[in-house]
């Protein structure tokens, strides 16, 4: 049995919230550089150069790369031999979010659905806990912006539509989203499971580093094919026309009910933020 004190969790979540919002991952920067090589639209190329410049300014000056510093989505991967000491795990995460969004001058974007009254401290966080054997404890902070989340969808397809039907749904979703989710985007696709599990798979697919292959060769082939289809749409950076609409399509899949074919598309803007830490 290993003990982790909630104070360490608070501090870690705080730091991850600030770092996620100010330090864009090297994998995303490399993807911008690669996109710049392939983009033919002058406006698109100009936009990609500014996104690289924006990421540098954010990192150097420690200000958020985007004013929408997102809903704080936190993944906890923990071993069942870990004991949380000194208080509640969930409350520690909420407190870390509170402190990070305050101390990092991050925008508080969470409100009541009807009155639109802001909660004032960017809580509650969205917390996904995955309990596995062992004594590891890993936190992933993935702030999610509203513009790209608004363009995401879950659907229950008829099994008969098969791979082509899923592809059509994914490509159509990117097409209809057009400029709204801040292209170039990353397209997270969750296939299988149940209604809510498909959405979670799609979100988790966004956490895989850009440029890393899907461990499943069959899904890797689909990712390459669907990315090409998405980039034929011509939407381009910021939707103003161009070759690079998306930087990647990432798929996660699991078995589903014999009656169902759940599919979720979670679109991620180019500010593809996530930071991880192990305690």
């Amino acid at each position: 049995m290993r003990s982790i004190h909630v104070d360490d969790i608070v501090r870690t979540v705080r730091d991850l919230a600030i770092r996620a919002n100010t330090e864009l991952g090297e994998d995303v920067l490399r993807a911008f550089e690669a996109a710049l090589e392939r983009e033919e639209s002058p406006t698109g190329r100009d936009i990609l150069k500014r996104l690289i410049e924006n990421a540098q300014i954010a990192r150097d000056e420690k200000i958020p790369m985007c004013q929408d510093t997102g809903f704080a989505v936190v993944f906890v991967d923990m071993g069942q031999d870990v004991h949380i000491e000194g208080g509640s795990l969930r409350e520690a995460i909420e407190e870390g979010v509170r402190q990070g969004y305050r101390d990092g001058y991050l925008r508080k974007s969470i409100c009541h659905p009807f009155t639109r009254q802001n909660t004032g401290d960017n809580t509650p966080a969205i917390i996904h806990i995955d309990l596995q054997p062992g004594d590891h404890f890993r936190l992933t902070m993935a702030p999610k912006g509203g513009g790209s989340e608004n363009m995401s969808r879950v659907t229950m397809l008829t099994p008969a539509v098969g791979i082509q039907g899923v592809k059509d749904f994914v490509v159509q979703r990117v097409k209809e989203s057009g400029p709204n989710p801040c292209p170039p985007t990353i397209v997270g696709v969750g296939i299988g499971g149940t209604f809510e599990q498909a959405a979670l798979l799609a979100k988790k697919a966004l956490l895989r580093p850009l440029g890393s292959p899907n461990p499943d060769p069959e899904l890797q082939t689909l990712e390459t094919d669907w990315l090409e289809a998405v980039n034929r749409l011509g939407i381009g950076p910021q939707g103003l026309g161009g070759r690079i609409t998306s930087l990647a399509v990432h798929i996660q899949m699991m078995p589903c009910h014999i009656a169902s074919l759940p599919v979720a598309v979670n679109i991620q803007c180019h500010a593809a933020r996530h930071k991880e830490a192990s305690l």
């Binding site: 936009i47 500014r50 996104l51 410049e53 924006n54 990421a55 300014i57 954010a58 000056e61 200000i63 958020p64 790369m65 985007c66 004013q67 929408d68 912006g145 513009g147 400029p179 801040c182 910021q238 103003l240 803007c269 180019h270 500010a271």
Partner: peptide, 9 residues
């Protein structure tokens, strides 16, 4: 149009 997501710049 301004560049979405280029908030620091």
């Amino acid at each position: 149009a301004a560049i979405g997501g280029a908030g620091a710049l």
